[in-house]
Design a protein around this nucleic acid. Structure first.
Lengths: 154, 154
DNA sequence: ATCGCATCGTGCGTATACACACGATGTGAC
DNA sequence: GTCACATCGTGTGTATACGCACGATGCGAT
């Protein structure tokens, strides 16, 4: 079989490099790479519940909450009670949040370009499709104990 | 233009899915996904300095230190003074660390297989190559700033 | 209506990721 | 030899990532 052992490390290296670079790029604007992802998610679908926001990022609900607390202090997002479900809270971008997001989008264009250039244009769609499939296949089954391929022995 | 906007999010989703799944898989063994990466790196090159270990993972030196403290408590790694450089410390796997790593390797086989299956066999090599190029192109810039040659090795 | 159970947000604990600053040590220029 | 400067590990602070447990609310079956 091919070296499936390199795949995880390559994925990790690429992600961490992107994350580091993004953090550095966004630092002058006072936000982090992950906060940018949150703002971007809200810009594509406003008035989400915290749960739905977390699902789309994707991230953990308790992580999202911590981020929202910080972003609220900066006045970039606001939370309101859900109109029909009093357990939930809806999250949306403030005017300042929308403005900030546009700035961040422009500031990060160079990173997206650089990443994109590492791929042959013809391969881009397929590359993204594979990444998506990897994420889906890992998320799908909630811990398959039915998986006996790990017949382990210690 | 193609949707270069989806590439970062797809990369993020795939990495986080892998990381979550790995953490869950390794939990019964008392180690984390990132600790596994550290152990794997040591298993491929023993007696590294903390700095070199961090560079290879890749990770931050201060992060690596925190991980080493925890792994030392578990008796999986040990640190010694560097033979020629008294500033540095060398890191290596203990016997228990090597044993543990083999267990972890087997336990994670199902994850690697699942990830690999999301790729057409013919595309695997190219896919990994693109990931590597993305990481390199993003890291290169950083090197050109704080620069200092680190010519070769390995 | 009520009860059992799922789902919402919250709070807590642990581990990473990284920046930054610090003291100690190595190294090269003079 | 000295001194300026780079590099090593360490320590601190902030932000994520996630699991787990909790109280409050919603909802379906009875």
């Amino acid at each position: 079989m091919a070296d499936n052992s390199k795949l995880p490390l390559a994925l990790r290296s690429a992600y961490l490099a992107m994350h580091r670079k993004s953090d550095a790029q966004f630092a002058p604007y006072g936000v982090t790479a992950d906060q940018f992802v949150l703002l971007a998610t809200l810009s594509r679908g406003d008035a989400l519940t915290q749960r739905e926001l977390a699902r789309r990022m994707p991230s953990d609900p308790s992580t999202v909450r911590a981020m929202l607390v910080l972003l609220e202090k900066q006045g970039l997002v606001e939370r309101d009670v859900h109109p029909s479900d009093s357990r939930a809270r809806t999250v949306g971008l403030t005017a300042a949040g929308k403005r900030k997001f546009r700035q961040l989008w422009n500031a990060s264009e160079s990173i997206r370009t650089k990443m994109f250039e590492a791929i042959q244009p013809d391969d881009a769609v397929e590359f993204i499709r594979i990444l998506t499939r990897i994420a889906e296949s890992l998320n799908d089954e909630i811990l398959s104990e039915s998986n006996r391929t790990q017949a382990n022995q210690v």
